[in-house]
Every structure is written in C-alpha cells, then in structure tokens.
Design a protein around this nucleic acid. Sequence first.
DNA 1: TCAATGGTTTGTCTTGGACAAATTGGAAAA
DNA 2: TTTTCCAATTTGTCCAAGACAAACCATTGA
Lengths: 319, 319
Amino acid sequence: MNCSGLPIAVVERDTGIGKDTLRVWERRYGFPRPYRDASGDRLYPVDQVERLRLIRRLLDLGYRPGRLVGAEDADLAQLALAAGSALPAVAELRQDGDSLAARVVDSILSHDVEALRRLLSMALMQDGVERFVLDTVPAMNVAVGEAWSRGELMVFEEHLYTELLQKQLRQAIASLPAGTRRPCIVLTTAPDEQHALGLLLLEALLTLHGAACISLGTQTPITDTVAAVRAHHADVVALSFSAAFPTRQLTGVLSSLRAALPPTVALWAGGSGAQKLAGARRSVVPDVDFGVELADALVLLSRWNESNQAQPASAPTMQ
Amino acid sequence: MNCSGLPIAVVERDTGIGKDTLRVWERRYGFPRPYRDASGDRLYPVDQVERLRLIRRLLDLGYRPGRLVGAEDADLAQLALAAGSALPAVAELRQDGDSLAARVVDSILSHDVEALRRLLSMALMQDGVERFVLDTVPAMNVAVGEAWSRGELMVFEEHLYTELLQKQLRQAIASLPAGTRRPCIVLTTAPDEQHALGLLLLEALLTLHGAACISLGTQTPITDTVAAVRAHHADVVALSFSAAFPTRQLTGVLSSLRAALPPTVALWAGGSGAQKLAGARRSVVPDVDFGVELADALVLLSRWNESNQAQPASAPTMQ
DNA sequence: TCAATGGTTTGTCTTGGACAAATTGGAAAA
DNA sequence: TTTTCCAATTTGTCCAAGACAAACCATTGA
C-alpha cells in the first residue's frame, strides 16, 4: 500500500511551481490529480511530481503550459526527447573541449569524486583562469545541462558537480591578486536567484582583469544592493541570472533597481536568464547593459574604461 | 506623492513571511495594514515592511506572534532593545576573541573590505583551522548576530561578511589533504535551509580529522540525499540548520530522512537550528544524533570510530 | 522534578472567483 | 515580403473567509 504522497508545500519547493499554480493547473487541465488525506489536503504521488519536474524542464525551454500540462504521456516523452537533441545547436563549443566535458559527465555519473576533482583542477591548471572561465566551464555546463534535460542526472549529482566547481573557482579567485583598479563592481543576484556559479565566473574574470570586485553572494534584496553601492562608492552593479530565473520577474527587478540606482552607476545583467530578454525586441529596460555571454563582460569592462579614461586605466595585459 | 508600496509577493521574499501568514495576521491582529491598488491587490508601505522585518528578528529569538504583531510601537522597540542586551549570556566566548570580533564588526560597519579580509586571513593563520573553526568563527558570529538583532547591520553587510568568511573557509579546506578514512560523510542542508556557513565549518572540521567528506552544498531534496548516500556508500549524513530554519519543519525533515535512510547509516543534525529541538524534552526524533555545538561533531566522529573499528566492513552498531 | 491533560495560539490548506500581464494569431500597412 | 498593430486567448497571481492540525502554554497529579 503506497498511499504516501507529498504535501503541496513540498511539491512547491521540489518543483519550483507555486502552490497557486499547482491548484489552478489541476482545475484547468486536470493535472496533477493528487490524493487527499483525512482532512482534505492534497497529497501528490511521486510519479506525478516526477512528471511535474519534466514539465518544468520543458517550460524553461520555452514551451507553454497549455501544450504540456494537459498532454498525453507519449506526447510529453517525445517532446523531452526532441528537446535533448535540439539543444546541441551550440555544438561549436565542443571542438576539443568535447572529450573533457564528456569525461566530466562520465565521472559525475560514476560518482567518482576524486576523478572529478582531478579533472577540474587539471583543466584549470592547463587552460589558465581566462580560458577556463570563458571556454572550458561553459562547455562543461552545456554537457551537464544536456544530460540534465535528458533526465540522466539526479539533483544530488548536479549539486556535487556545482559544489566542486565552485571550490575550484573560489580557489582560483583567491590565488589572484585582489583587483584594486576602477571600476569598483558590486556583484550579486536577484532575490529569487540562488545560483552562484555565474556570479563566481564573473568575479574570476573581472578580478583577473584588475577590477575591484565586491561580491555579496546570492539573493541580495534590491534595497541592500543599492545601499552597498552607496557604501562602497561602486561604479557598476553586475547581476547574474540563470536560465531557471522566472522571466516575468526579470523586467521588474531590473527596472526597479535601475530606478533606485544613481544614473552614474552602470547596471550589467548577464547569464542565460538575461539572454532571453536581450533577444526580445521590446520591453528591454533602458540603461541596462545585457551581456549574452561571459566574454561580453570584458567588452563592457573595456568600454567602461574608455568612457572613464580620465584616469590612466589602460587595457589589461593578460597572459 | 509617495503612494508606492510593495506587492505581497515581494514582501514575502523580503521578510521570509509567507503570503498566507501575512494575510492572516492582517485579519487577526490588524497588522500589517497595506493599501490597495486599483484592482484591490495589497500594497505594503516600506515602513510596515521594516516593522515586519523587526518582528521576524524577534520571532527568530523565540517570541510569539501574538505578543509582537499586535503590540504597540514603543513596546516593540523596547523588546528589540532588550533582545540586544539579553543575548550576551554567551559572554564566556568573548575573553580574548573579544577584541578580534569587535574589530571584525567595526570593519564591516565601516565597509572596509580589505581590512576585513586581512583580519579573517590573519586570524586563520594565527589560530590554525581547528581553533579558528571551533572558537574564533563562533565568537565572530555571536558578535555579528548581536549587531544584527540590534538592527545595526544591513542585509548587504551581513552578506559581505558571510561571503568573505566563506572564501576564507573554502581556501582552508582546499589546503587540507582530502580526507580518505572512514567514515564517509555526506554533508548538506534541508531543502528550505540556504545557509552554507555551518556546513563549511563542519566540512573543515571533519576533513581536518581525516573523514572523507562529500558536500552537496545547500538545499538538497531528501530523495536526493538518500540517493547520494547509496551512490557513495556513505556512513553518515550530516545536516546543518541555521537559527532561521522554521522549527515546525525540523521534525518532519529529520524523521522522513531517517525513515528513508538505511538503519546502518547515522544521521547527525547540528547548528543553532537543531539546538532548539535538542533542548526540548519531547518529540525528539529517534536515531538522530544532535550536535549542539561544533565541537560535538568531533565527539560524534570519535564515537563512530569506536563503534566501527572492530569490523571494518560489516554491520555497524549505530543507533 | 517530571509526565499527562486541556485550552489557546498559529501557520497552512481549502474553494471558486477575478483580473492584469504576457503571448499568440492574423489582418492591415509599409 | 516584412513589419506593425489589434483583439482573443492563455496564464500566473491575488483575494476572501473558513477550517483544522500541530505547536505551545499552563495547570494538575504523581
């Protein structure tokens, strides 16, 4: 008798789908269809939660709920398959990084912590910080992301990969001389964005090029980001958005931040979450610089230096 | 005309108080009392949000909502003051660490990133990893926590402190030889617990004592923690709970994890969040080891080693 | 000092309705 | 053909008031 199921609050944080949304889907599309406990509360069976997770992945890819939530099982499976093979449009990344990224995924799947640690460490040594951040890590992330959207990866495996990669990156940042030159850049993420990886990549890159970075970690309230800028006399605020960040919130966060910030302070938005909006024709927030890729941060940095070259802050000489 | 206010969703994530709770407080205690926009949606003025934040702090300290939410302004302010001076019951910690902790708080408040970095780095060098983790960091945290509950610290200042301390700790961990001995310990936090600091302290301490640590970072779903244990043949799961973790969830998380885990695998719960439950007389989950302080982790570790040194691979007698 | 009892507090869940913002499809204009 | 614009639809979030179980508190009895 497997009568057990998960209460709505657990499903909400497990899938990232709000309570209200879960209830309204049930009313409109007939899915999910949870059991009820003795007092009438919803209890979601694990397989329905599993399906919700799949729907969430496809939603992030751009499909619309009406197409997914009410669909047949077979239909959904087919879409998932198509999504897996549609992604490698960015296959250019996989020239020589291919074998490394593949080996990384392999070591994740075989739960060989030591091998994974060694791979990451060696890649960093071999490539140097700049190539590691700009090419190697994105290639690995694409490979891991593909495996993820194919459903091959479990959450804990992705967590472990992220954790080890973060360790490696923080170590790299610590080994760099602390940036002292202008611009002084405050780094953080929006209140609902808890992915720290993009932030770390950005910090490594900018520190490498001599900028003074102040990282506040993830999820700083907007009021406090503004206060931090004031306190540290920062020149730039850089926000990182992951693909999982809800698009509807993006415009709101950016425009209210832009409004609260002094006009002399630049606002940069990057990460694959920002990319969605950067491509859109309309509703782009004015006076916000969008970086589609990490390399764009360097462009923004040198452009800032040009605009403010009263001081001799010349081009960085890397490598 | 400053008619603007924050919508309920923003207040929820800014204060950590759920939408339902905000509405029911309004109904029961008459506070908060937000405006409405044209379509009847709540708009919370900033000063009410500020008060909600204060209430949240006092709530974390153990006060009950009925006492706080409906109280007079003066009454609330007095409680806040009392809370600030009531904390130093743990004043024993402040013998010689006092001057350091005070200097740390000073450099946070004066926004001197370099000074703060230097202080942390020097303290680590001087004390060594073990004393740093067991004494110095807790002393600093107490000092920072006091300043926080007195309302002297802003969120971004606390974020910056946490971020720099994390950098320092991760560097320390990286400099240690990776633990290889048994027990193999999976480290993570509950799905609603996003504080990584306690986890890092634990990882540093256990790694220092030779245990093989696998950190999954924060907020791993319970299912995945169990899967990670299976995949890595771990002997122990260690969870870290901050004081901010909602007490009502604690028992649920621990008992469902305990139920899903093989009985041979030990479950350790630590951090100031777990402390609340460890002190309580009843409703303690069976077969879970509570660590009130960090030093208790070492006790648990050596106890585990004693119980399992006779038969290296066969049935452990952990209970 | 400790365990059991009963009343109160408190957070979360429920239903069904409503609505604005986002998205889409197609017609009209360049 | 491509772009611009408008109307129809989709979709997430909010509201109201009621209900209830778990947590908490204070009192009683051993």
